[in-house]
Computed example of a mutant assay.
Amino acid sequence: MDFTVGALIDLDDYVASTRARGRSWADRQLDQADRAVRAATAGQPVTCEPLPPDEWLVTLTGDDPDRLLGQATALAEQVRAGIVRATELTATVSLSAPRRGPGAERDALRTNAYKLLLGGDRVITAPPEPRPDAPPPVRIEAELARRIQAGDRGGAAGLLTGWVDRCVQERDLAPKTLHNWLMGELLFVVDVVNRCRLAGGSTDWVDACARLPIEELITVTEIHERSYLHIWIEETLTRLMPQAERDILSMAESFMATHYTDPRLRLSTVAQAVSASPFYISHLFADERRTTFLRHLTGLRLRHARMLLTASAVPIDTIAARSGYLSAKAFRGVFKRHVGCSPSEYRRTHRSPAP
Rank of each mutant, 00 (worst) to 15 (best):
M1P: 14
D2R: 11
T4M: 03
V5K: 02
Y14M: 10
T18A: 07
R19T: 05
A20D: 07
S24P: 00
Q29F: 02
A39G: 00
A39D: 10
T41L: 03
P50K: 12
P52C: 08
L60V: 02
P65S: 11
L68H: 03
A72M: 04
A72C: 06
A74T: 13
L75C: 10
A81Y: 05
G82L: 03
I83E: 05
I83M: 06
V84A: 14
R85A: 09
E88H: 10
E88P: 01
T90F: 07
L95N: 06
L95W: 06
S96V: 01
G101M: 09
G101E: 10
G101Q: 10
P102V: 09
E105P: 01
R106H: 08
D107L: 11
L109P: 00
L117T: 08
V123A: 07
T125F: 11
P128Y: 04
E129L: 07
P130T: 01
R131L: 04
D133I: 03
R139V: 12
A142K: 11
G155R: 04
G155W: 02
W163K: 14
V164H: 06
C167V: 13
D172F: 08
W181C: 06
L182H: 10
W205I: 04
V206H: 13
I214K: 09
E215V: 07
H224Y: 14
R226G: 13
W232V: 07
D247M: 03
D247V: 03
S250A: 14
E253N: 11
S254Q: 15
T258A: 15
P263Y: 10
P263M: 10
L267M: 12
A271K: 05
A273W: 08
V274F: 05
A276W: 01
E288F: 08
R290T: 12
T291M: 09
L294V: 14
G299R: 01
L302Y: 04
L302D: 03
R303P: 00
M307T: 13
A311C: 04
I316N: 13
A320E: 06
A320I: 08
R322S: 11
S323I: 07
A328R: 13
G333P: 00
G333I: 10
S344T: 15
Y346H: 14
T349E: 14
